[in-house]
Design a protein around this nucleic acid. Structure first.
Lengths: 382, 382
DNA sequence: ATGAAAGCGCTAACAG
DNA sequence: CTGTTAGCGCTTTCAT
């Protein structure tokens, strides 16, 4: 189990300097082009030659030089993921899915983050990945950064994207089957209907950032409300993804006794809303029902356990990779993505007869002063 | 805001096929070596030539070919991050820190995940990144997968690592200043002392996976207990990182009325323990105090808000990158890493006089059947 | 200060 | 089936 000391024997030689295709050829007693053929699985190589080459490669510890290969091919077998974020659940999970698929296909994966949606930052990132010779790119277009990068990508690079559904439906993009997405609108509709079915007069909505002025989840929520003839309250739009934003907004929102059901843009926000309810002396779900999106691993362990919509982001990532068609040529059958599923747990319940009035006590100490523990480390706003 | 349609004009030309150094040279009226010199910031170029070249590059949209460069240099300016995980907070955050530092230094970042700690998987991953020509590697050695990969890395590759502290203190590795870590042992000691100071007779420990048989956090916990003359209970070691594991283990553990304080290996586990306490009719912190590690963004919004130890993983990632010394040559001053800090919130309190007895009601429906919502999507065990 | 020439390791036409 | 001959785009001597 303990580290032994980094193969000190390796350091004796004057520098073995990596065996090349010619070294292998010499050792195998063939020309180096034959070695190349073996490496590239060309059909026209005798079994005997192939065996000799394989043996020589193993003996010399031959390792193809990616750079030389990319240079000669005019193309590297690599994909770089363009994303504004590496931490948020959906992003990290999608990245993980891409990596799994790429690894299986023998494709290298790189990552480039979009630090902001400023034109300069977008341009710099797009410029960096715009060289078709250095591989394909997958952009995570769940937000403004991503969709703007997508927009700015030159037509010369091979790309694919995981996006919000509105983007996928854009005519200009819909023509090329390079975008995957989940139907956020339908998912939000389902979640809203669940709340309405529970007898809530209407549902309020706390939104996450979106790549468009009106997010898909917001759209679905509104559709469900209108279909049911329920009033459509104003959307609560905290700045950014931070839980603090949702918490603060909810402390305002929940003062209104008419608010008995809140659909949140994601599970993090839902947590903030639940906590805000607690701090105002409101019980979830007795006084107010809360729904999230994503189904993060922690959701079943919240108090109360969160009712939420599950998305399989890893599958989304895998699909995005498939769209690149970097596979071994064969157009494999693509299993359809499973639809998002509403997972009903404890945070939603029947509409209260008369909702408890909110206690307007101040937030707990640890959430009060900025920097006193309210996630000062994290970039919260954009 | 809406996508306009992928620069259709770009597609008119028969294929501009990327300007090369020679095209630039021709346009600028110089030899192509001069262009190379400009690109590489060589001193011996007249200002006039430099200007012409710069202009030509801009006009032609010149973009250096990374592969050609890597081939000629025998080395790519890239770093690949070797990690078992992309989702867990500490990992994702460290990755983010590395990306930031690498981007600032103009270094590409790739990622390779270690799907398991099986010898084959470790070997395959190490083999993939072992070519010094394709850049440096940073391994996230917070667990067995990572530390084993570190161990298997050939001495020929340029590497650095973010690790647990025991690894950093290994003599064989300590000689080379390529490892960063936080003092997990001291942090755990502090957290345990906090609990002891609150009057708890002893502290129980639920552990996360570690890269060594005895994790650093476990070690620190034990040290604090022994220093205080408190009994050292058996460590609870659920399999893997899953919250479910911690939850299940805690439902067992908390049956014992002597358990009044639990130090958890990370915040996720702490959430599971809190939920288990709830489900057993125990109040946190009145009946049992709970401490986590990491300070995830959600921690302040748990109910109760979590007392935990904050680590700046992004800084750890940045530091790991610095250790590669890929910077512009100058050995910049390295700011010391801030020490982990205990953040006291609501989940810890004075030891109870007599602890409530646990109600042995069954777990809530949504946590009962596997696949019924208890994070069936995620690889929980290893 | 600048140009000419060689070669990094590999693939891809070509010949045989 | 296998070997020969050219480059891919760039950096690095070496001249000038």
């Amino acid at each position: 189990m303990f580290v032994t000391g980094h193969n000190a024997e390796d350091e004796k030689e004057p520098a073995p300097s990596a065996a090349s295709i010619r070294d292998v050829a010499k050792a195998a007693g063939v020309s180096y082009q034959t070695v190349s053929r073996v490496i590239n699985h060309h059909p026209n190589v005798s079994q005997k030659a192939r065996d000799k080459v394989t043996a020589a490669m193993a003996e010399l510890g031959y390792r193809p030089n990616r750079a030389a290969r990319a240079l000669a091919n005019g193309m590297d077998r690599a994909v770089t993921v363009l994303t504004s974020n590496t931490n948020l659940f959906g992003y990290a999970e999608t990245l993980g899915g891409i990596e799994v698929a790429a690894r299986a296909a023998g494709v290298h994966v790189a990552i480039r983050v979009l630090p902001s949606d400023s034109p300069e930052d977008i341009a710099a990132a797009v410029d960096q990945v715009s060289d078709p010779r250095s591989g394909a790119v997958i952009v995570l277009a769940f937000d403004r950064e991503g969709s703007q990068a997508l927009e700015a990508l030159p037509a010369t690079v091979s790309w694919a994207g995981a996006a919000e559904s509105w983007l996928g439906r854009q005519s200009s993009l819909a023509e090329s089957p390079r975008l995957t997405w989940y139907d956020d609108t339908a998912a939000a509709r389902t979640a809203t209907e669940h709340l309405l079915d529970l007898g809530h007069r209407t549902v309020h909505h706390v939104a996450i950032p979106s790549s468009s002025p009106v997010g898909d989840r917001e759209r679905g929520w509104k559709q469900a409300l209108e279909a049911a003839g329920a009033p459509v309250p104003e959307v609560v739009q905290p700045h950014g993804w931070s839980i603090a934003g949702a918490y603060d907004a909810a402390r305002e929102l929940l003062l209104d006794p008419d608010v008995t059901a809140v659909l949140c843009g994601n599970d993090d926000q839902a947590l903030g809303v639940i906590r805000a309810a607690n701090d105002l002396g409101l019980k979830v779900p007795e006084d107010v029902s809360v729904v999230g999106f994503d189904d993060v691993p922690a959701a079943p362990y919240f108090t109360p356990a969160l009712t939420t919509v599950r998305f399989d982001f890893a599958a989304l990532g895998r699909r995005a990779f498939e769209l690149l068609e970097l596979g071994s040529g064969s157009t494999e059958e693509r299993a359809p993505l499973a639809s998002p599923a509403l997972i009903v747990r404890e945070s939603t319940g029947p509409a209260p007869q008369g909702r408890t009035a909110a206690r307007t006590t101040p937030p707990p100490q640890h959430l009060r002063a900025a920097g006193a523990g309210a996630e000062p480390r994290h970039k919260e706003d954009r």
